[in-house]
Write a protein that binds this DNA or RNA. Structure first.
Lengths: 215, 215
DNA sequence: ACTAACTTGCACATATGCGTGCAAGTTAGC
DNA sequence: GCTAACTTGCACGCATATGTGCAAGTTAGT
């Protein structure tokens, strides 16, 4: 027996629908964290009733979103191993940016009273990593020391969240903007931030257009 | 006749209740922008029905909150006249901080889909002032120029909003934190920010502009 | 082509929030 | 102490959202 109890493999269309619902939830909740299940279902091209066939209730859906997102973010965060703290922050921000869509939901959901605790728990590894980086940066003098590490970590997180959720993600250099904001809050002068970014093209802050660095 | 048409002066308890409702709305909505009128009424120690005696509907209440807040913020913003852009930003942030409670609601409400437009309109003068300061700072090289003025103004606003809404307003140096975050995002290194703050004790940060309160 | 899995629409129950009407109670203020 | 102003509770009607049961339709997979 392949499976000890229950659970024959679900049908193809069912799996597609389930994925579609999750995707629709991300898309819909990103712009409105209070969107109804009906809105999500319609966005997924599925009936509301079907949604309940895949998720027990609203919380189940949200929880799965949080779990999925958190896992991706944590994996990214734990892969960062630059010794240089500012660079680590920059890279972390840049990498997370690529998950923009997912990040937006998580960021939005994280603001929702009902799920703060759950999100906080799920993102613990990421937060630990940020705190570690910040602490290291304060130790070697590369980051500001006029703010306690714990608060600075929080400040950095909020700066990133702000840019992700409140600034136009489609703007020319959105990823770069996020990195600049984070580095600024972390204590670097803007010229230092610009220099750091210039020295590390592998940060891959895209992008097309020629809004060139310029200053 | 003191009053030409209509409007006999309302009774005292009525005026008190009205004010109480507004205060309760600020307190309640600050923590949960989606709080029900019932919650607000209860917080004001008044029946839900009474609330409707003072405000036609939810929007009327919110609108008055926005109008009140915006007026105070705009007045403060337009009083700033420091030639030095970083200092102007610092002072603006510090002054607005004193309106913390009111700022929190406005900041929270401003995030609400239904009232963004209204808030944006009401805060136009403040935003104009920020843009002017930022432009000036870019012109004289005291603020970062790697980001267009319009976006930088936005970034500054979001940084301030973040700290106000998301960081513990009761923490030791919350006002200073806001100023530091704003200056950091605006391009100053943290040492420059610290120096600026140190040179201008009249910013009145650190400690206690009086919530010495207790209850 | 047959069957089990899946989807769907509809009806239903429940809950919450908004906004209103009204009759009975309180209170401010003269 | 009288009266108008104000508050209150309760009853509605309305709208939206969640979650479930069920019978009838589709569809995937063998």
């Amino acid at each position: 027996m392949s499976t000890p109890a229950a659970a024959r493999k679900p049908r193809r269309d069912a799996r597609e629908n389930r994925a579609g619902i999750l995707a629709a939830a991300i898309e819909t909740l990103a712009s409105d964290p209070h969107a109804s299940l009906d809105a999500i279902a319609r966005c997924a091209g599925v009936s509301r009733r079907t949604l309940y066939g895949h998720f027990a209730d609203r919380d189940s859906l949200i929880s799965e979103l949080i779990a999925n997102g958190a896992q991706r973010f944590n994996e990214i965060a734990l892969r960062i191993d630059d010794a240089d703290a500012p660079l680590a922050l920059a890279r972390l921000t840049a990498l997370l940016w690529h998950e923009a869509a997912a990040v937006q939901v998580s960021a939005a959901i994280a603001l929702d009273e009902a799920h703060v605790a759950e999100t906080a728990a799920a993102l613990a590894p990421l937060r630990g990593q940020v705190l570690a980086i910040v602490g290291r940066g304060q130790g070697d003098g590369s980051l500001r020391t006029d703010v306690p590490a714990a608060i600075l970590a929080r400040l950095v997180e909020e700066a990133a969240r702000s840019v992700v959720t409140r600034m136009d993600a489609a703007s020319p250099d959105a990823a770069g903007l996020a990195v600049r904001a984070v580095l600024g809050v972390a204590g670097l002068s803007w010229r230092e931030a610009v220099a750091l970014i210039a020295e590390h093209p592998e940060l891959d802050l895209e992008s097309a257009s020629g809004t060139e660095g310029t200053d």
